Every structure is written in C-alpha cells, then in structure tokens.
Computed example of a mutant assay.
Amino acid sequence: MHSSLSGLGVTSPVLAAPMAGGGTTPALVAAAASAGGLGFVAGGYKTAEALAEQISQVRALGISFGVNLFAPNPVPVDPAAYRRYAGALQADADRYGLDLPQAITEDDDHWQAKLDLLLAGPVPLVSFTFGLPDTSVFTRLHRAGTLVAQTVTSADEARLAADAGADLLLVQAAAAGGHSGTLTPDRVPPAVPLPRVLGEVGAAVSLPLVGAGGLATPEAVAEALSAGATAVAVGTVLLRSDESGASKPHREALADPARRETVVTRAFTGRPARGLRNAFTDDHSGEAPAGYPALHHLTSALRKAAVQAGDAERVNLWAGTGYRHATAEPAADILTRLSHRL
C-alpha cells in the first residue's frame, strides 16, 4: 500500500469507486471503510448543498473518505444535431407523456460551488474525473491538507495530471461501467485491457496508481496489482449490494441472464459510457451526437420516468464488463472477498 493511501488509514487495496447518479450512498462509503478500504462520496449531478449533506453524514462516522467531482470538460452539442436527436427520442418520451426540452442546457455541474465547499471544509481526498482542473485547483486543495487524485485513461493523460500536481492517479480502463473518464470525450477510448494501461501509465509517471475498470473477481484484482497498481477501485460489482443506491430496474437487469453484453454508448448523455445493452442503446446509439452535458439533460426526465415505471429498456443501466459478478449481499463482504487472494 502506498504511503499516500496508508496515511488515510487504508489497509485493504480494494476501494469503492464513486458512482454518481445514485449508486454510491453514504452507507456504501461507510462499508468500504469497514472493509479496510475507502469510498468516495459521489459529487456528480448534485448541488453543493446536497453534497455538503452527504459529506457531513460520512464525516460524522469518523472514517477516512474521498469526494469525487466532475471537472468541467464540456463537449458543446451542435444545435441542429440536438434538435434532430430530441425528435428521434420523442417516441420514447411519449410513452410517459413527456415533452423533451427544446432548449439546450450546457452547465458545469455547480463546479465552483463544490470546489468552494471542499476548500472551506477540507476532506481527506478529492478525485476529479471528466476534466483536468487548472493547476491552481490542485495547489489550493494541497494547501487545505487534501490529497488529490485524477482519473486518467492513458499515459498521455497521466503526464498531464502529474504536471498539474496530482498525488495519485485513478487509471480507468475501457472495461469500466458508466462514463469514461477520458479527457477527450469527443472520441471513444480504445478498448485497452487494464493491465496494459497500468503498464503504460507506470512507465510514463512515477505517481501511485489505482486501477479501475472491469474488476469483479479476486483474480482480476490480483492481476491489476501485479501490473503496477497500488490499489484498485471497484464499482459495478457493488451495484447490487445492500448499501447501493441503484434503482430496482438497474439491480434486476444486472442479475438478468437474458442481458448478455455491455455496450459503450453516447445515447444517454452525449459522452461515452458503458452500460448493459437495451432497447434504448439499440435504437439510439448510432444516431446520438456528441454533446455533454446537453444530452444528459435532454434524456434525464425520460430516464427518471422509466425507472419509476420499472422500464429497464429506457434506463441507463451502467455496468462494467464484470457485471455478472455483482451480488446481492453486504458491500463489505464483497470488498473483503475481492482482496482475499492478496
């Protein structure tokens, strides 16, 4: 275990990855700590006030934890392409009596307010994904006593993160569920296996690495650690856990033997993300334009209505390639089992 993590009281190399949009809960963060690891409060898609509330819940437990933020790295959508796509989705929206938003929403997920929150009330560890913040952000967090991690998907991104001042890198392979942390989201990242990405990143920078993406068995965890990771972060394998905030349709789809594959799609958010194949990905992946966060806001109400209706065919069923190993049991048991060969 690298000193930067052991200094946070981490004794297990298996961490719980942040899953924005509901998957991560304060209870899941607590479970990760109880297993000797560490969890992240997922700051994405929350207001600063909602994030502050979750941080205070976790802080009250007296455990080490991280907070993950989406750093701004917008992919502005072409207005004509947005209108075309909104028209293509209207038939899905009609099932729920929804009018899709015609106005394009480009926002930064309350970036400055969340950053101000973390500078005013420092937490042990902050990680960034989607974009690479300005060097001054790293400097200010360091001054506040916070360790800073950056999500990267390649050696080139790792060099940029090291130059910006990152203390450690979350190295995400294409097998990961949910959004890719790529810094060039207008392009779908190549499908490179995690051990190879870890080797390439480790040759490029001398920072400690946390491997992520498709890790759902003790063997895969051991392989990532032997490839140069000092720890790993797992997400999909926790989505059916007792502490997960994943929706009922999402949990059931992960366990459904009829769901045979994951796909990388922009259809839900305009940014590449891996999820279980369903009718929505089949119908719309080919026509979805690049455009984040505009497409996220376009499809948000439709996805919420589908969850309420138990309609898994129109929900973003985020899942990494190891989704078959997701089990319905306490998260601490899952995390402990993943580290048992080490």
Rank of each mutant, 00 (worst) to 15 (best):
N68W: 05
L69W: 10
L69K: 04
F70C: 08
P72T: 04
N73L: 11
P74N: 15
P74Q: 10
V75W: 00
P76C: 00
V77R: 00
D78M: 02
D78S: 07
P79C: 01
A80D: 05
A81M: 02
Y82D: 01
R84H: 10
R84V: 04
A86P: 04
G87R: 00
A88M: 11
L89A: 03
D92G: 02
D92M: 02
R95V: 06
R95M: 11
Y96Q: 04
L98A: 03
D99H: 02
D99S: 14
P101W: 01
Q102K: 12
A103Q: 12
I104N: 01
T105E: 12
D107C: 11
D109Q: 04
A113R: 12
A113Q: 15
L118P: 01
A120S: 15
P122C: 08
V123A: 15
V123C: 02
P124T: 08
P124C: 05
L125A: 08
T129L: 07
F130I: 07
G131K: 02
D134L: 11
T135M: 15
F138R: 11
T139R: 11
R140M: 14
L141I: 09
H142L: 14
A144D: 11
A144Q: 05
G145S: 11
T146H: 06
T153Y: 06
A155K: 08
A155H: 12
A155F: 04
D156H: 13
E157Q: 07
E157K: 09
R159E: 09
L160Q: 15
L160Y: 06
A161T: 08
A161R: 05
A162K: 12
D167Y: 05
L168Q: 08
L170K: 09
